[in-house]
Amino acid sequence: MNTNTQTLYTVTVYSENHVGLLTQISNIFTRRFINIESLTVSASAMKGVHKFTITCYCDEKLIEKLVRQIEKKIDVLTAYCYVDDEIISREIALFKVTTETLMANNAIESMVNRYNAKIIEVNSLYTVIEKTGGKAEIQQLFGELEPFGILQFVRSGSVSITRSKYEHLSDVTMC
């Protein structure tokens, strides 16, 4: 996909916790041929209210249309979209390398320290490194680890919080 002219948007959706909503929301993206980069769903700070965090590359006009289309769904309380500097986002990534490479020299260990990552499991065969951070930072660590051989790699979708004081939803749940 050509992402040059497009911005990475983060869409947050608050909804009732009803079955089947995930497909309804993702359909809105697929109908317009927009690839979802990442998606997480979890409980929000409010009881019974679920929060979706969706990231995708899109242009401004289209993302606004998509957000209105999402809000139109009966079980959706509200939806917003943000660009990167309006939110704080984190992903978590796990890397598996052989313990042998870890032991061979201290390159990996110093990398782990430099990146503020953690070694969360070591055994005779493999070592698992956990890194929480921004998308770019994780990508960078991946780049540095790759020459040593990565056995397995997994990353979560991003979770985000706005830079404003309250969860946006407070204005709608009361009605």
Binding site: G20, T23, Q24, N27, I74, D75
Partner: peptide, 12 residues
């Protein structure tokens, strides 16, 4: 049918 009809209903 709920899944099939979801994209073409207001609510299912």
């Amino acid at each position: 049918i709920v899944g099939i009809s979801q994209p073409v209903t207001k609510w299912s």
